[in-house]
Amino acid sequence: MGHFEMIDLVSVIDACTSDRVAGHCVSMARAVEELRVLTGDFVSPDETVANALSAVALGRGCAVVFDERAGADILLTP
């Protein structure tokens, strides 16, 4: 999980999880931005932040949408 506190990661995932017909879904674009605001870390690469958040999201049974890059539409499900 890198240098991020677990409580921060869980808080962001909980705040960014959307209920959908297919289950819980987390937008990485939104989650990455929320974690940056929460922690003040605007230096870590997006990939590092998204990897830490996606591991927590998948562990909590959420589908993850990697939409932080233009044209990206990769979906991971637990």
Score class of each variant (00 low, 15 high):
Glu47Pro: 00
Ala57Tyr: 04
Gly59Ile: 04
Phe66Ser: 05
Asp73Thr: 04
Phe42His: 15
Glu33Pro: 04
Val32Trp: 06
Phe42Gln: 12
Ser54Lys: 10
Ala29Ser: 14
Val65Met: 04
Leu38Ser: 09
Ala70Val: 10
Phe66Ile: 03
Gly61Ala: 11
Glu34Asp: 11
Ala55Lys: 12
Ala50Arg: 04
Leu35Ile: 03
Val43Gln: 12
Val32Gln: 12
Thr48Gln: 13
Ser27Lys: 02
Val49Ser: 00
Arg30Ile: 10
Arg60Pro: 00
Gly59His: 06
Ala52Tyr: 07
Ala29Phe: 15
Val65Tyr: 04
Asp67Lys: 01
Gly71Lys: 07
Ala72Met: 05
Leu38Trp: 14
Phe42Met: 14
Ser27Thr: 05
Ser54Met: 05
Ala70Gln: 08
Ala57Ile: 09
Asp67Phe: 00
Asn51Phe: 11
Ala57Asn: 02
Gly61Trp: 05
Ala52Glu: 05
Gly71Met: 02
Ala31Trp: 07
Asn51Ile: 09
Val49Thr: 04
Leu35Gly: 01
Asp41Pro: 08
Asp67Gln: 06
Thr39Glu: 01
Gly40Glu: 08
Ala31Lys: 01
Asp73Gln: 07
Ala55Trp: 10
Val56Leu: 07
Ile74Leu: 14
Val32Gly: 10
Gly61Cys: 08
Asp73Ala: 10
Phe42Ile: 13
Glu33Ser: 12
Val56Asp: 01
Asp67Cys: 01
Arg36Val: 06
Ala70Met: 06
Gly40Asp: 09
Val65Ser: 03
Val49Lys: 00
Cys62His: 08
Asp67Leu: 00
Val43Asp: 11
Ile74Thr: 10
Arg36Pro: 10
Met28Val: 01
Glu33Arg: 13
Val49Ala: 00
Val49Gln: 00
Glu68Leu: 10
Asp46Ser: 12
Arg60Phe: 02
Ala29Tyr: 15
Glu34His: 09
Ala52Met: 04
Leu35Pro: 04
Leu38Met: 15
Ile74His: 03
Asp41Ile: 07
Arg30Tyr: 06
Ala50Pro: 08
Asp67Ser: 03
Pro45Asp: 15
Arg60Met: 15
Asp67Val: 00
Glu34Gly: 06
Arg36Ile: 07
Ser44Asp: 06
Glu34Pro: 01
Arg60His: 07
Asn51His: 11
Glu34Thr: 15
Arg30Lys: 15
Leu58Thr: 09
Cys62Ile: 03
Ile74Gln: 07
Leu35Asp: 00
Thr39Gln: 06
Ala70Ser: 11
Pro45Glu: 15
Val43Ile: 13
Ala72Ser: 12
Gly59Pro: 02
Ser54Phe: 03
Ala29Ile: 06
Leu38Asn: 11
Val56Pro: 03
Asn51Thr: 10
Asp41His: 11
Ser44Glu: 08
Ala70Tyr: 12
Val56Ala: 09
Val56Met: 09
Phe42Cys: 12
